[in-house]
Nucleic acid binder design. Sequence first.
RNA 1: CGGGAUAUAGUAUAAUGGUUAGAAUCCGUGCUUUGGGAGCAUGUGGUGUGAGUUCGAUUCUCGCUAUCCCGACCA
Length: 468
Amino acid sequence: MENFSEWFHDILEEAQITDSRYPIKGMSVWLPYGFQIRKHTLNVYKDLMDVDHDEVLFPMLIPEAELAKEGIHVKGFEDEVYWVTHGGKTELNEKLAIRPTSETSMYPMFSLWVRSHIDLPIKQYQVVNTFRYETKHTRPLIRVREITTFAEAHTVHSSAEECKEQTDESVRIYKAIFDSMGIPYLISKRPEWDKFPGAEYTMAFDTIMPDGKTLQIGTCHNLGTTFAKTFDITFENKEGEHEYAYQTCYGISDRVIAAAIAAHGDEKGLVLPPKIAPKHITIIPIIFKDGAEEVMAKCSEVKEALQAKGIRVQMDTRDIRPGKKFYDWELKGTPLRFELGPRDLKNNIAIIGRRDTGEKIEVNLDDDIAEIVSNLLTSIETDLKAKAWAKLEESVVTVESLDEVAPAVEDEKVVQFYWCGDEECGQAIEEETNVDVLGLREENIETDKVCPHCGKPAKHLALMAKTY
RNA sequence: CGGGAUAUAGUAUAAUGGUUAGAAUCCGUGCUUUGGGAGCAUGUGGUGUGAGUUCGAUUCUCGCUAUCCCGACCA
């Protein structure tokens, strides 16, 4: 995969994930196969969130006055908001923003809902589309103008400690999501100048794409009382005093799917982790004129047996040569393939092929095939994850001087270095190297290293990379 | 948003200021096939959009839209 950009663009079309020919820049269509992947990804998300969050749905339009209330926040988004200015031919008295994110849509309502500490915490999430007028070159799933799958959670708490705990918990939830899809990640605390507009601090997940650039795939923001002050979210505490509520928000998007595709794919196409694969296994009957009925009957029997055990199974009965079917499902990334022809039937065996390793396993038709398949799916999940993590770890190199940054980045690496943590120094480093500081991988550590820019004692381990 | 390039069939492409825009692939139909991308026959389908130059524009010029590369910004 020497040209990731091209590979990614082609695979989305060939595997029928999205059709990016929709005539608006940065907006594309989810095709049935891609939609299935998206659905299973959302199920992973929802299963984890539903444990102690409530799913809700807020309106997409936000009055200009609400959006403008939080000065720092609005400044972060002002250049990328779409506006609704007319209703039919009538110009609206007040422009309506199409949500670029939902804080200003949700928090005025939170203000009405929160009265006392009894009402807290509130933990809600919604899966919606959001819109951002991107000026940069857009890229399906990675940089789009309509984020079709914006899964955002918002919580309200009665103390700063609880807020901090929630942010830690959010990080744990996101780890679980990425782990179940085998997506490797780097967690870092974003630098001051790159945190979510209005947040106290931002914990971010970045993955490394095959071209060495990082992709932000999830963020957890501790909002403190910034938004509570702006939107007047107050509660009466146990002592009968009114205080501002503490909030967090955290979100993931379509990019998770982009990351899964990029993390596991190969020259033959997609390699989908079982959790999000539309089908776990494709049964390919090998049909000749003679014995076709028997082969089909056995295949159907296997299909039903697998289905009964909750395995997502399909049978490819198209009247084309088997080789074509093999290529098709390899391209689409189905984790397993089950081949059965007259010759096998005579020997009472079948072949199961693994998409990730190409390995072919002979099974006896009297064996518990559902059991074998389940076990294979589990090892595929484990192996994909291990392979992707090994690649990520290989991609991170430690540097001691800024001169080493450019060659490392040229070599498609992410660099980590010991840093003093001063904002001014960080900005200077970004300017000098023309590489972004992702953030702090480890904070306030004991080290005798010095900052490669200013020479002051280093306090943190920081990450730098070319970013998407 | 600044600099550069591109736009021909579903896809990737060839050609042309003037009769009917060509081959591939894909797709449809028929027959023979089917253990790693089948063969033959036959058929459908095309110059992004708006204006200008011109007797005549897919071709030349400009705007718009979209796509690709580089930069600033951003998730």
